[in-house]
């Protein structure tokens, strides 16, 4: 069986008859030819396929295309008008050398866009925890974190030193009676 979907992708209407099991990532890649969105794992772990669905970051390998019907998707291809005019987040990734092989980059950039939407001036710790759903094997995250801080208008050199605390020793949260 196939189902008709209509999804606005990077501002343009798209439509196709698809198998219900078609993953949104493959809809973008194979139906629309938007190859920027990469698939790096099978277990919703790596985040390389992260796109915005109605403005929020999601892993497009774990969303059925049919579930995105009548919704709006933004991929990295939709952020910048052209390579010489980069959106502030990818521009910061370039300035801070926040990418090497580039495979995690589209997902990382989209996760960062979503993170900054929810928290426009994050601390280093908040950036690190906010990107916990995206794996990078090349950069050690050092320059990715700097790029996100820079994209938020903060000086990464200062923000970096601002929080000497140990990052993420597990979650511990609470409030006294």
């Amino acid at each position: 069986m196939t189902v008709k979907v209509e999804i606005t992708v990077n501002g343009e209407s798209t439509s196709a008859d698809v198998e219900p099991r078609l993953l949104l990532a493959h809809y973008l890649r194979d139906q629309l030819g938007l190859k920027g969105t990469n698939v790096g794992c099978d277990t919703t772990s790596c985040g390389a396929c992260t796109v915005l669905l109605d403005g929020e970051s999601v892993k497009s390998c774990t969303v059925l295309a049919v579930q995105a019907d009548q919704q709006s998707v933004t991929t990295m291809e939709g952020l910048s008008s052209d390579p010489e005019n980069l959106h502030p987040v990818p521009a910061a990734f370039r300035a801070e050398h926040g990418l090497q092989c580039g495979f995690c980059t589209p997902g990382m950039v989209m996760a960062a866009v979503s993170l900054l939407e929810e928290n426009p001036k994050p601390t280093e710790k908040q950036v690190r925890e906010g990107l916990e759903g995206n794996l990078c094997r090349c950069t050690g995250y050092h320059n990715i974190v700097r790029a996100v801080l820079a994209a938020s208008g903060q000086d990464p050199d200062k923000a970096e030193g601002s929080e000497p605390d140990v990052v993420a020793p597990g979650f511990s949260t609470g409030s006294g009676a």
């Binding site: 190859k35 920027g36 990469n38 990295m76 390579p83 980069l86 521009a91 370039r94 050398h97 950039v109």
Partner: peptide
């Protein structure tokens, strides 16, 4: 020197074998 690879990598993405 900032990477010359990046403008493409950060817009349409790199082109891997599967792409």
């Amino acid at each position: 020197v900032r990477r010359v690879e990046d403008p493409v990598f950060l817009t349409r993405g790199a082109t891997y074998t599967d792409d």
